[in-house]
Write a protein that binds this DNA or RNA. Structure first.
Length: 824
DNA sequence: CTGGTAGGGGAAGCAT
DNA sequence: ATGCTTCCCCTAC
């Protein structure tokens, strides 16, 4: 008799070989596994799936109640009906997900076993696809080697750095890599084997002008075709370095395969346009299958256990991907003068600064045309128009997306990576987060938004304290990735603790990798929020609370660890509130949330050090920013951006300067001394950035030269300091070495304050953002100024960021040094 | 045995 | 106490 135990549900079918042998010749469709593959849900229990996917209720029966249900006829019939309903629900789910037609298509494309496709073996599908393709071309296919052999092959070659960007790393890093590799091997865990996609540093903040989301259609398959990347075309390297792009003219097997898939998909999509309704879904599934197959090829090249494992090819593909994205960013910023605020692997987001959706669209058309000119296969496309967007971090943002149905626009909120899209946060923190996000994106005034968020926090705290929140809202869900017993530090993991205890006290038969465990964080009744033990020890299954009064929800944990961080992150770039203030609303000790000084962050040092004095006074003694013309090589003082666009605010004070032709520089972006027509005297963003950088470097070196001069005017003694900040006394000025002939003290000729002031002045000249916060003006004038500034922003962005980085780096260094002095 | 890498963020343990 | 590293989980692409 075969062993009919449940199989490892993390992989393969939910059935052991024993069960499989009992159903030999039949296909097994495990709707649990299919759902996990095809859907994104917090929980994959039949109850949840039935509710969310089929909109049907399922009656749950606890395992321990089943024996008693056999005792009475009515309850036995109820049990039978429930079992029957479960079977129907599973079947309905299968049809709902179109599992059979989809896996059928996938199998037909790849030529593998349907049963395997149903098990989700994606690597095997690609393997068979390639086996057939190469066999057809009379190639001898590679033998299947073990993962171990593949990894060993990797290790014989010198290991490359993960970041392929710069090769200038020291030997220590290589050693570190190897050590890491060793531990990975022992633990059976793999770190990344090669570098992947490029993620741009986001320009964080809340945007309320249209943002364009452009992305390359299936980037990696397109790269393979664009550059003819294949086993048959790419020259192998012997030193483990990334191979060069092939110059081979004849199309490789991989690119041809992909081209066929793409063309077939195009044909199917064409057929869909005038297909009868009954055929429509069939075509759609066919089309999906073609896309899925094309997209999964790259992954298998990088999969170390694949028969067609080819790390060099995978590396080459991702390298091209990074370069393509970077080239696109450069083109958009430097040639099209648009501001790129973020990008991830195959996409860029462009801040248009426009309120007009049609104009924004026309920019998108222009950009896509320019980018697409450069490639044969690669196509960039407009993927989204965002009316407003909150950009928090890499891979974390939300936006109001404008979509069209029959040319009628409607808005949907898109949320990526934020806490509320993750299953490992409690429903209550997701709800609060959603509320805050909606407020932030509502377009209401800053005051209103902040007020409503504060109000909501106060309210939810009240409700929690009064026990008005349902238990379900506190539930956090996490997935087991190993057997619960297999965790080395299981005692620190709440979901592991819960799983182990549930198995121990017999509430269930046990858990497997892949199971999702719900839990709530509790504290013992009576012991207040002390948090005496680790939080993993205080995790309980929700059912454990229902019939046991000993453990109650740890409200303080939820306020401080679930709600506060979520809201606090969302509000990071919202003015008028702060983590402390938010903590206050939640009744937490706000001193614990005080932002520790982080001088590298966006603190405005100029106002810290110099107070709020008028700009004229503040930058007194600073050298002007000089721009020299590329054509006539004359130079002129660069005017302050913001004053160029709001002449009305301080007309009188600057009226003499207004006569100067340079005043118009930012409007025209041309040398004021060159002829007005023609291409003479045009100044590009890169040129501005270079010139600013050079001048900033000049002041930096002036500072580092550390010239000391005697404060006695008659002495004129000048020397160079021995080192920077040698001592506190030296700092304040030591006695002139010319003593006793002179009674003066040595002073620094160019102090850090001077340098700081100078760099801040450059920042001020190029500033298009902070100035808006400081100005008090009426709405209409403000709007026109904002428009002007957002137009000029892409032009000065590069220069501004260069100089502000220099300034912040300096400030960072000084503060560290002065801390050191105090400590000694 | 059962595609990839990049990256954020929680929690604990460790060295300082 | 505090920064750093490690593990874990989940997500974006």
């Amino acid at each position: 008799m075969p062993k009919l135990t449940k199989g490892n549900s993390m992989f393969g079918a939910g059935a052991s070989p024993g069960i499989m042998s009992c159903i030999a010749g039949r296909l097994l469709c495990d709707t649990f596994l299919c759902s996990r593959d095809l859907l994104k849900e917090v929980s994959y229990s039949l109850t949840q799936l039935a509710k969310n996917q089929l909109h049907k209720d399922r009656k749950e029966i606890a395992p321990q109640d089943i024996p008693s249900m056999f005792q009475k006829l009515e309850s036995l019939i109820e049990l039978i009906e429930c079992a029957q309903q479960d079977a129907w629900l599973s079947l309905e789910l299968m049809f709902h997900l179109s599992v059979i037609p989809l896996t059928h298509q996938l199998t037909k494309l790849s030529g593998n076993l349907w049963g395997k496709t149903l098990q989700g073996a994606r690597a095997q599908r690609v393997e068979y696809l390639l086996l057939h393709a190469f066999h057809e071309q009379k190639y001898i296919n590679p033998d299947k080697t073990s993962a171990h052999a593949n990894e060993a092959k990797d290790q014989r070659l010198p290991k490359r750095r993960i970041d392929a960007g710069s090769a200038d790393r020291n030997a220590e890093e290589f050693g570190g890599d190897d050590a890491k590799l060793e531990t990975d091997h022992v633990k059976g865990k793999k770190g990344p084997a090669y570098a992947g996609g490029l993620v741009l540093e986001p320009k964080r903040g809340l945007y309320d002008k249209y943002i364009l989301l452009l992305d390359f259609n299936s980037l990696y398959p397109s790269i393979i075709q664009e550059y003819n990347i294949c086993f048959t075309t790419v020259e192998k390297t012997t030193d483990g370095s990334i191979p060069h792009l092939p110059s081979f003219k004849e199309i490789g097997v991989l690119p041809k395969l992909l081209r066929d898939l793409v063309e077939r998909r195009k044909r199917v999509k064409q057929m869909m346009k005038n297909a009868p309704r009954i055929k429509l879904q069939q075509h759609d599934i066919h089309q999906q299958a073609l896309k899925l197959t094309a997209n999964s090829m790259y992954g298998c090249l990088g999969f170390s256990n694949s028969r067609f494992y080819a790390k060099p090819l995978a590396e080459l593909i991702t390298l091209q991907g990074r370069e393509i994205l970077q080239r696109t960013v450069d083109l958009v910023q430097n040639n099209l003068n648009l501001e790129v605020i973020y990008g991830d692997t195959d996409s860029i987001m462009i801040h248009t600064g426009l309120d007009d959706i049609e104009k924004a669209k026309s920019i998108a058309v222009k950009v896509t045309q320019e980018v697409n000119k450069k490639y044969q296969c690669l196509v960039i496309d407009l993927d989204g128009l965002y009316k407003r967007m909150l950009l928090l971090k890499k891979k974390k943002y939300a936006a109001i997306k404008v979509q069209f149905r029959n040319d009628i626009p409607y808005e949907v909120i898109e949320r990526k990576g934020l806490d509320m899209v993750r299953r490992d946060w409690s429903l209550i923190s997701k709800e609060i987060g959603d509320f805050c996000l909606n407020q932030i994106l509502s377009g209401g005034s800053c005051d209103d938004v902040v007020e409503s968020i504060h109000g909501a926090l106060v309210k939810v705290r009240e409700e929690m304290k009064n026990g008005e929140i349902q238990l379900e809202k506190y539930v956090i869900t996490k997935t087991l990735t190993k057997q619960p017993e297999a965790y080395p530090d299981g005692k620190n993991q709440p979901h592991v603790q819960v799983a182990l205890r549930m198995k121990q006290n017999g509430s269930c038969t046990g858990f497997s990798p892949g199971d999702t465990i719900p839990y709530v964080i509790c504290c013992e009744q009576g012991t207040s929020s002390a948090g005496s033990s680790g939080m993993a020890q205080r995790a309980r299954h929700p059912d454990e609370l229902k019939d046991n009064g000993k453990w109650i929800i740890d409200i303080d944990y939820y306020l401080s660890q679930q709600i506060h961080p979520v809201v606090s992150r969302l509000c990071a770039s919202i003015q008028g509130t702060s983590p402390e203030r938010l903590a206050d609303c939640l009744g937490l000790d706000s001193t614990k949330f005080q932002r520790r000084p982080n001088y590298a962050a966006d603190v405005d040092h100029s106002s810290l050090l110099l107070g709020s004095v008028d700009d004229c006074e503040r930058y007194e003694g600073c050298e002007p920013l000089v721009i020299s013309c590329p054509s006539c090589s004359s130079s002129f003082d660069c005017p302050v951006v913001v004053t160029s666009f709001c002449g009305s605010t301080d007309d009188e004070t600057v009226s003499p300067a207004r006569e100067k032709p340079e005043r118009n520089f930012w409007q025209s972006l041309r040398c004021p001394r060159c002829p007005i027509d023609g291409d003479m005297g045009r100044v590009s963003p890169a040129m501005i950035a270079n010139q600013v950088k050079r001048q900033a470097d000049h002041f930096l070196s002036l500072y580092y030269r550390n010239t000391m001069t005697c404060d006695d005017e008659t002495c004129n003694y000048t020397t160079r300091g021995l080192n920077l900040r040698a001592s506190g006394d030296f700092e304040r000025g030591s006695v002139c070495p010319n003593y006793p002939h002179c009674n003066g003290h040595l002073l620094k000729k160019y102090t850090e304050a001077d340098l700081y002031k100078q760099l801040s002045y450059f920042c001020h000249v190029l500033d298009t953002e902070k100035c808006l916060q400081k100005l008090n003006m009426e709405a209409s004038a403000r709007m026109s100024l904002e428009t002007s500034l957002s137009r000029i922003r892409p032009v000065v962005q590069m220069a501004a960021s260069v100089v502000s980085k220099m300034r912040d780096r300096c400030a960072f260094g000084w503060i560290n040094l002065s801390d050191l002095v105090v400590a000694v």
